[in-house]
Design a protein around this nucleic acid. Structure first.
Lengths: 148, 148
DNA sequence: TTCATTTATCTTAATTTTAAGATATATCGT
DNA sequence: ACGATATATCTTAAAATTAAGATAAATGAA
């Protein structure tokens, strides 16, 4: 049996590489449609999860508060996102996707999906499901232990 | 059976999240020891794989040529790395880890390993091995299809 | 209520990264 | 050998990101 630390380091290495190369596919496509990874991630989040306080966007996509302000400003300039004041807490702004933003996501999502399918086509459907289950568990536990 | 694209998108999502949170652990540690993720990655590469032409570093860690120059300059300033001319091709510089750089890696590696172990402790040893195998396959195929 | 503390967003400067292209050298076809 | 093309590194400006801290509002303890 190998030392336990080896399993962990090995996992870390292959996780980083897989993420790097799969994201290389995604990034190339996202650049082509005129956004960067962060902007696309925020827009997708708002599309799928609805309006979010800026703070919560930063918690999910892991960026500093200053960068959230910057990225949301860019999306507002592109008219893909609007800032909406919170009626309950005057410190809070929600970011909300606009109709133009929704249309953009809906237009580009089929291509995005095709790019991701190409990126992960080295695994069979069963392998994808097995990997996804393990990664879900890993992601949750890493998030929990990071916040403690 | 779900649509095939769903397997792929789901895998992409959980891969991104797992990578994000595991890297959050690693980044926090790397910052504490005075480097950033890119610098540490380059230094580790040179430690484990020996001297590399700058070009090849960029291919492995996916960064632009300008950024390689910048990062290697920073590591040279810290005396962790030296530039060595190639005797065969006068365009090429190798980056090579110095004794000080080696000592730095050797000093910090036990902590780095402990941080990674903590980050991935949500999986059992068997699960780590299963995940690593799938991610290795995924990484290789994503790299190949990206370059085509 | 009041004051101290916490929280959410924004601002600014510095750092990191990319993009575009310049320079020097190597390679390839003729 | 020659000229065209390709390759490796570097330079510069712009874009993206972080870090530190300012401001305003909410929360909590006394």
């Amino acid at each position: 049996m190998a030392k336990p630390a080896n399993d962990s380091l090995q996992l870390f290495i292959v996780l980083s590489r897989a993420s790097q190369w799969v994201n290389a596919h995604a990034d190339r496509h996202i650049r082509r449609i005129g956004l960067n990874r962060t902007e696309f991630g925020v827009l997708e989040l708002l599309y799928h999860k609805g309006r979010q306080p800026l703070q919560q966007i930063g918690e999910k996509i892991l960026m500093t508060s200053g960068n959230i302000t910057y990225v949301v400003d860019k999306l507002v300039q592109k008219e893909f996102v609007a800032r909406v004041a919170s009626p309950e807490d005057r410190r809070v702004w929600f970011a909300e996707i606009t109709d133009k933003g929704k249309a953009f996501i809906e237009d580009t999502f089929p291509e995005h999906t095709a790019v991701i399918e190409e990126a992960v086509k080295g695994l069979t459907s069963e392998e994808k499901q097995a990997a996804a289950e393990l990664l879900k568990k890993l992601g949750h536990s890493a998030e929990q232990s990071f916040k403690k």
